[in-house]
Amino acid sequence: MSATNVVTAFILAVFSYMLINNVVLTRFYGICPYLGVSTKVKSSVGMGVAVVFVICLAALVCYPIYHFVLIPAGLGFLDTIVYILVIASLVQLVGLFIKKYSPSLYKSLGIYLPLITTNCAVLGVVQENNALDFGMSMANALGTSLGFLVMIVLFSTIRERLNAYDAPKNWKGLPIALITAAIMAMAIMGLTGMIA
């Protein structure tokens, strides 16, 4: 494969992971923050950016750990335990780093960082990457996390307007938000098969 082919394949894979196999709406990772942190646009942007940051970093760190440490040592079955420890410590480290070098960024992202340890999107992507090569796993990390960012920001803008809408009392809040998510998922379904 020539260099341009590799680049096109990478970009196509990123778009496929970002939109067609969207992380929240078709693969169902990270529903908790998607429903929980999407009531305000500002906080959803913060959460989304923090997730992009952590997923890309976690994929970058976990790939060599799995392929150059666990597999040669015959410990492939320990992947889940190792990954969750790596992700938890990574999140802690990133928090400390941002706090030291950019207090203003820490103020806006800091509160979301501890929540990300228990975000299934991070562990889900890293687990999926076990079966992929390096380029594809980076495409998966980048596409998935960008897909999360786009969807949570779109969802929060809709939810801010839904608050002003006069829905029946028992549908207010979460039920109507879930129906909104269903309509968004239907829109995403329309893209199925666009990239082979």
Binding site: T26, A182, I183, M186
Partner: peptide, 25 residues
């Protein structure tokens, strides 16, 4: 077939939550 797809999951969960909402209200 929509209900076997991801969108159906959100619809079913949303409707169940709305029914529970009646009782909690």
């Amino acid at each position: 077939p929509l209900f076997a797809k991801p969108a159906g999951a959100f619809i079913v969960f949303g409707v169940i939550e709305a029914i529970i909402g009646v009782f909690t209200l």
